[in-house]
């Protein structure tokens, strides 16, 4: 079986988790990999739990959903409480400090994604794109070039520049984070 890389992006409806999943899957494909993106959400348009899952592989993807996540992004407390148990033993948990107070593990990477988004673009909604940049910068899962192209292709028309700025902030913060860890 070829290597599967599983990413779960979880938060609340309206935070852009599903769009983030689409962007990540598109970037993986632009990098020449195989990707499948699925989602789970309630009938309401905003609020309620919302999650998006992306499986990335060099080979064929049969089961398209997460079995044990390699990366878990939590943009709400509920998401963190609910999905931590599905994270791999040495999987990466990224939590937005603005929305998540109680951490299930001391190994969590807790960063103020929504605050960075607000400072960089003035819009909290871009936090999901900041998160994507941070996640990609931290793991190298997809290339920056592919990420930028994928953001351009999928964000609402007219918001490309704002979202690319959000993405750049995510990548920069990831670099800083790596530097701070290696000290």
């Amino acid at each position: 079986m070829s290597e599967r890389y599983e990413v779960r992006l979880a938060g609340k409806g309206g935070q852009g988790m599903i769009l983030a999943g689409i962007i990540l899957a598109e970037a993986a494909i632009l990098d020449g990999k195989n990707a499948a993106q699925t989602q789970s959400y309630g009938p309401e348009a905003r609020g309620g739990a919302s999650r998006s899952e992306v499986v990335i592989s060099d080979g064929e993807i049969d089961y398209p959903k997460v079995t044990q996540a390699d990366i878990l992004l939590c943009m709400s407390q509920e998401a963190c409480d609910r999905y931590f148990h599905d994270l791999k033993q040495h999987g990466l948990l990224i939590a937005d400090a603005v929305h998540v107070e109680r951490m299930p593990t001391s190994r969590a990477v807790v960063v103020p994604l929504t605050q960075w988004a607000e400072e960089a673009t003035g819009r909290r909604i871009t936090a999901s794109v900041v998160a994507l940049g941070f996640l990609a910068g931290l793991t190298g899962l997809v290339s920056r070039q592919a990420m930028e192209a994928a953001v351009r292709a999928h964000v609402p028309p007219g918001t490309e520049e704002i979202n690319l700025r959000a993405l750049a902030v995510g990548f920069e913060q990831a670099e800083q984070f790596i530097r701070s860890q290696s000290k």
């Binding site: 689409i22 499948a36 993106q37 989602q39 398209p64």
Partner: peptide, 9 residues
């Protein structure tokens, strides 16, 4: 729903 809403390459 899984196949209908799923996106893949």
């Amino acid at each position: 729903e899984m196949i209908g809403h799923m996106r893949e390459k």
